[in-house]
Write a protein that binds this DNA or RNA. Structure first.
Lengths: 216, 216, 216, 216
DNA sequence: GATGAATGAGGCTTCATTCAT
DNA sequence: TATGAATGAAGCCTCATTCAT
């Protein structure tokens, strides 16, 4: 009965306890994505991880803890934001750069949104997650990247000196996030449609006074 | 033995089949809100509706159908958007009116967001919902209200003639929606915080050229 | 899936809810006797009762409640004490009557002892039983029967007027009970051995002064 | 990898195999008392003994054997009876000495009774215990002590020469034992209530003829 | 139509036991 | 020899669903 972990699990983890934990978390994530929270039974997760059903409990207290950690882990992995945006300050147009940001962050948000939504569709799970980890960081780090980029542009004189670049950053991120939300709600394969008009609106607002000034 | 529905259910519905259906859907919604999707068992719903457990199946094929309809019905009910906004065109400031919209729509979104999230957490449910009803209408109707309001303001000359008011409308709605999402994620009692800076950013953008033009 | 109760259960209970409950309790008792408390799994009980595993929960809150009621019910059934003892007052000898009592109550105690012991080997179960029902009545009712008998003998002048017949009654019952305890502990089929010497000791004590008085 | 036992276990046992066995048995007993038989899992016992879960199986065949030995060992330890009773022959009154015995043996019985009950609750365990060890010795050794004491009193002329002192000894022990049984059944903190009336009854019976004889 | 008892699949979790280290 | 991770059987319980009444 007590076999070592299956060969390929053994290989993937090297027998390291932390690696096995993460192997399980990844399996749990896969199941959540494929079958939803209510389909993420302990047995399904164990099967996906190719381990015994009881083995889960050597690594996690209970199903909820496991799910919470699986989601948090994935959120963390996904939260490496679009880091190279600030380097584009001064290059291309502001609108193009904002669209670049929107394009780059979309796949991440497409994955994050259902995860987050699933997470708080279950009050108990949400509560565990809140206890496990202060959320919301990913949101702010992305907005911060955007803010830094816009500040740089402002310092380069490419956007209005009086523009509220922080508000603009929040707007851009939020509409991206919201669009991901709706994209998921509407159904699988949506045209990416990068919110061109909305982003252009923001970009125009940021650069508006500049375009009028040269006139003088 | 065929008993009639309990007295007060009978009274509330008049015995009309459609009314009984809606009575059940409302009960289901209450249970979803109170105990989450996973807590919305058929028994709990029947108890909330004060009818027999088996009676549900005289009105719905199965639990999933029932839940999907309950959510869709509520979404529909909530989608009566902020109808009096267009009447405010020409009155107050544009920024104030947009903030008014944000304030008015917040409670609705606060209720809508967890419903959407619930839908996300179960792929099967989501699929049923997608099949039952083309979504996204509520979104567009709210955005349309906003658009009509902004168009009116544009016609009154209170916002720039060249401003993309549709984009602005979409932005305002989406950041409201997204904020509701985060409000829920962060936990129950959040300061309402009406996105003042972001809304002002949009309002400024809409009115920007007006303020500079009179100068000339 | 939802069949009516199996034919013979149906027949035995007439479909009466209370009868089904008692049918289940009896099945539970049989399982406890055969396999012990730890072997009295819900499934084993359901199988013994020839009903579905889930059906138990239409009649009892949980396993512990079920077991507690099963034991209490049996104790109640067994607690009809040796009712005809008082009628023997004046007939035969006191010692013979006490031995008669011991013989008659032995099988009952043999069944009661392991039940009681099993009951309080599990702290949780014991607690449930205490909440369900004030115990100890059977003990007292048996002692009371004995007491009434001895009192009658005393009034007939067959035992000493000053003898503490209540103490004697308690002694006789207790040694019977204790013997049942040890009989069970030692193993199945023990010689009944009705505590002749101990009972004679008590009988002698009760009649002692009588035998000396005639001397005078 | 073969590690030595934890330091303090090592120290307590000197590494002697038999000592380690007994260390484990004592731990098992503690767990049984604290959490009941059903709570005495191998893991709980290993934890209480501060050894590895697998280590148990180097000392015992299986859980049942371990539990049976734990109970038997404790019964043996407890069976050092009230040894100083015979020395009291000739001193105090017989009744007082019997009450002294009852008082002294009570705590022991209070501990013994739940152990016996635990054994009763599991037929398998009881069977193992029966096979492991011929029981009933403790009972007899206590009764023997009582017998020897009463014999001494008889030889001192303090009790009737014709009294069946063995029966009296058995009675006194059994009512003590039975009372412990009921004390436990009724709930934790019972008034000790030393069976005064019953013991006095026995004492009177033993001394009855003495009191009447001198009269003559 | 209305009901709710009956059902077994399936969910979460615990546990005795083994064996590679 | 000591260990503890791995395991699946088994335990308790919930639940959607059906159907006799």
């Amino acid at each position: 009965m007590p076999r070592p972990l299956p060969a390929h699990v053994q290989k993937a983890t090297g027998g390291d306890t932390r690696a096995v934990r993460e192997h399980i978390l990844d399996a749990a994530y896969q199941v959540i994505v494929a079958r939803g929270l209510s389909g993420a039974s302990t047995r399904a997760i164990a099967a996906e991880a190719d381990i015994g059903a009881g083995t889960l409990y050597n690594y996690f207290d209970n199903r909820l803890q496991l799910l919470a950690h699986a989601i948090l882990r994935r959120i963390e992995l996904l939260s490496r934001p679009v880091g190279d945006l600030p380097e584009r300050a001064g290059k291309y147009t502001v609108a193009a750069n904002l669209r670049y940001f929107a394009r780059r962050i979309s796949p991440t948000l497409d994955e994050l949104v259902p995860l987050g939504a699933a997470a708080f569709s279950d009050p108990e799970l949400l509560s565990v997650m809140r206890n496990e980890h202060a959320n919301g960081e990913s949101v702010h780090s992305s907005i911060n990247i955007l803010s830094r980029y816009l500040l740089a542009e402002q310092q380069l004189g490419r956007i209005s000196a009086i523009a509220d670049y922080r508000a603009a950053a929040a707007i851009v991120f939020r509409i991206c996030h919201d669009q991901a939300f709706h994209r998921y709600l509407q159904g699988g394969s949506q045209r990416p449609e990068v919110l061109t008009r909305e982003i252009d609106f923001v970009a125009n607002a940021l650069t508006a006074s500049l375009r009028s000034e040269p006139k003088e």
